[in-house]
Write a protein that binds this DNA or RNA. Sequence first.
DNA 1: TGACAACTTGAAGAAATCTTCATCTGCAGT
DNA 2: ACTGCAGATGAAGATTTCTTCAAGTTGTCA
Lengths: 115, 115
Amino acid sequence: MPVPLYQAKAEFFRTLGHPVRIRVLELLQDGPRPVRELLAEIEVEPSNLSQQLAVLRRTQLVTATREGNTVVYALSTPDVAELLRAARRILTELITDQGALLTELRAPGAPLKTR
Amino acid sequence: MPVPLYQAKAEFFRTLGHPVRIRVLELLQDGPRPVRELLAEIEVEPSNLSQQLAVLRRTQLVTATREGNTVVYALSTPDVAELLRAARRILTELITDQGALLTELRAPGAPLKTR
DNA sequence: TGACAACTTGAAGAAATCTTCATCTGCAGT
DNA sequence: ACTGCAGATGAAGATTTCTTCAAGTTGTCA
């Protein structure tokens, strides 16, 4: 393997590991969008958004197309949407598990489940 | 949204964004394994592996169980395996799509397409 | 109990990533 | 050509994450 695959995978996940980039990808799930719209929905400075879009472009997760005086971004493959769904499933599960534990901890006198 | 969900997602992906942690998760896809075995397959110092395992434990992606004088790790949910598969699909696609352009991936930002 | 093995933990310097600011490019309208 | 707008880029300081080393647990066995 030219570049260790697990290295590439790690890099890939790291590019997803940023709130703004996640939001961008989620917004693009519903179809292409101009930067202007992304900017309206994500609370971040224009130059910061641009930086994050550049990261997504470098890893080929999105494509940018100039249309007149605006730039339109789109997911480069629908697989990305599927990945985000898989992630959401896991997160939901992990969080509800934790949440259940938390509520039990908050209820004094209630016996803790032991596994 | 209760607590920014996209923040939690980003954190989640960041924990996957490390070569050693990825390898660990992939090895655990085939079932639980003692640290000793992980150590034999991953080229990393014991203390470093331990640090990475701690990260995975904190985010609840894996569980650790002491069995005699060894510690056995396991995926906390099979969904993790599915996520890794989805990631592999995307990566494969992105990489084959690029073909010869792969070399340029590292260097400058991809130029904008013009229409 | 003492020695050893298997891991974990804390801490600190090194390295990577983020945010922000100033500057720059490409396009449209005048 | 000049101006303004939409984004992009480079660079620097702040923040986070990594790696490594020394020291600490916990369990086993003699």
